[in-house]
Deep mutational scan, measured.
Amino acid sequence: GIPATNLSRVAGLEKQLAIELKVKQGAENMIQTYSNGSTKDRKLLLTAQQMLQDSKTKIDIIRMQLRRALQ
């Protein structure tokens, strides 16, 4: 079985993952909103794209940590 310490770690990672998935969803929504907007929305679009990139990276890292914890 999986050690108890790993189980609480997994629960924490799953919570983090859920949050990051919401951030990713929000960033994707912002990108959709701003991509057909005016030029003043360009900065917001770039910010949203950066957020999305960061979020995807975090999600990958969390998933990797989850896999390790579940081994």
Rank of each mutant, 00 (worst) to 15 (best):
K43I: 09
L52Y: 05
K24P: 00
Q32P: 01
E14C: 15
R68G: 06
G1S: 12
Q25A: 10
A4E: 14
K40I: 13
E20R: 02
Q25H: 07
A27D: 00
M64S: 09
K43L: 10
I62V: 02
A11R: 11
Q65I: 05
E28A: 03
D41T: 04
A48R: 01
T57V: 11
S8Y: 07
K22G: 06
N36S: 14
D54Q: 06
M64A: 13
E28I: 12
T39E: 10
G37N: 12
G26W: 06
Q32T: 07
Q49N: 05
L21A: 02
V23Y: 06
K58Y: 01
N6C: 15
Q25F: 05
R68V: 14
Y34T: 02
V10Y: 04
D60Y: 11
K22P: 00
D54Y: 05
K56C: 13
M30Q: 04
D60Q: 11
S55M: 02
S35H: 12
R67Q: 11
V10I: 15
E28V: 10
D41C: 07
Q16R: 09
V10E: 01
A69G: 02
R42D: 14
E28T: 03
P3L: 09
R68D: 14
N6H: 14
Q49E: 06
L44H: 06
Q65Y: 07
L7M: 07
L45M: 05
G37K: 06
T5G: 09
K58D: 00
K58E: 02
G1T: 11
M64D: 14
V23Q: 07
R67T: 09
L7C: 15
E28C: 09
A48T: 02
Y34L: 08
L70V: 07
P3W: 05
L70N: 03
I59E: 01
S55V: 15
L7W: 02
D41H: 05
A69E: 11
G1R: 09
T57M: 13
S35G: 05
S38V: 08
D60F: 15
L52I: 04
Q71W: 04
Q32H: 11
N29A: 12
L66A: 00
Q16H: 03
Q50W: 06
L66E: 00
Q71N: 07
S55L: 03
L44M: 10
R9M: 15
G26D: 15
A11I: 12
K24D: 01
G12H: 15
K40E: 11
I59M: 02
L21Y: 06
I62F: 02
Q53I: 07
Q25E: 14
L70E: 06
K15D: 06
L66N: 00
V23P: 00
L17E: 00
Q71I: 08
Q71L: 11
S35L: 13
R9K: 13
Q32I: 10
L46C: 12
I19P: 00
M30V: 04
L46H: 08
L66P: 00
R63G: 03
Q53L: 09
M30W: 04
K22R: 10
Q32S: 12
D41E: 04
I62D: 00
